[in-house]
Design a protein around this nucleic acid. Structure first.
Lengths: 165, 165
DNA sequence: CTTGGAATGTCAACAAAGCTGACTTAATAT
DNA sequence: ATATTAAGTCAGCTTTGTTGACATTCCAAG
């Protein structure tokens, strides 16, 4: 047993195994973004728009500041994206009732429709991958991904669902 | 048994589970690139340089065309990156002996040193994540990532190691 | 042996999406 | 009152991707 712990069972930590994991992440992320990217390209939007739409859909009424922290970009960068989405009628920005400095972000019907379209495409690939790999593999997949996150982002990752209150 | 297959065991395919997987990919990828990005920023290089260096290190003597297919960018985009790496003495481009149209790419000592530095940082995070999650989780992680790739890239992903001949 | 096509490289122009820095406005908190 | 915070804006810059056009070199097929 001590043999297994210290011996061959740590083969998954060899440099070669780690390199393969790195490359797998690289190639898989390409697949991960490929389907939404194709849809976005037809609409003159990019990945940045997708991310904003995704997290607004996920946490309706979220503030700009919260979104900034989740996305990890500057407010100037996010603002450019939000401005086009608001102009195009996909997102609404409402002044906060408690704190009127804050803007709360929501998807319009059109925004929600696009979100569904993008999400459907991305989930279809995830579903196929999950189905092909099976429940146990999926559990492992999630565990490793979580362990790869920066602690701060891991907290935010968990907080997204708890925030729905 | 039929119950399990069609019932609760497919909970890993609910939209909510899939969404969580999507978000996990997003946050984990940020962690995945964070450490090399910090190093690259101090050197006036970017992720594009890292990718080129990585795959040249992985398959020394690879051709520009092969690299293009792996990286999935235009030759103009790759060329700009390669040009700076060659100018800076990190990469050598050698005219092919069999086919003199082809250029074979190699890292210089300095290039290999930078590759090691970037790779060490990235592998340290992977190693920590792998260790935290355990061998079984890692196997699942790899399975799901593979299933997410486009078939073409999946072939290239496998071919990288077989190409070392 | 010529010619067509492939591989490579280069020039120019452009776009998406990030960045910094400086500044305003409004509202809250101290 | 004053300081701080949330949001937005303007300007300018960088990286990394894109098209399109074109030159060079070289292999291979007719």
């Amino acid at each position: 047993m001590a043999e297994i712990q210290g011996g061959e069972n740590l083969l998954f930590l060899t440099d070669e195994q780690l390199r393969q994991g790195i490359e797998a992440m690289f190639f898989a992320y390409r697949g991960f973004t490929a389907d939404p990217d194709r849809i976005l390209a037809t609409l003159a939007y990019g990945r940045a728009h997708h991310r904003a739409i995704h997290f607004i859909a996920r946490s309706p009424g979220t503030t700009v500041n919260n979104l900034l922290a989740i996305l990890g970009v500057t407010k100037q960068s996010l603002n450019r994206v939000l401005r086009t989405l608001i102009e195009d009628g996909l997102v609404i920005s409402r002044v906060g009732s408690a704190d009127k400095r804050e803007r709360h972000l929501f998807l319009t019907e059109a925004g929600a429709a696009l979100e569904r379209k993008l999400s459907d495409a991305q989930r279809a690939r995830m579903r196929a991958a999950y189905r092909a790999a099976g429940p146990q593999a999926v559990a492992g997949f999630r565990q490793v991904l979580e362990a790869m996150m920066d602690p701060d982002l891991r907290r935010r990752y968990h907080a997204i669902r708890e925030d729905d209150r």
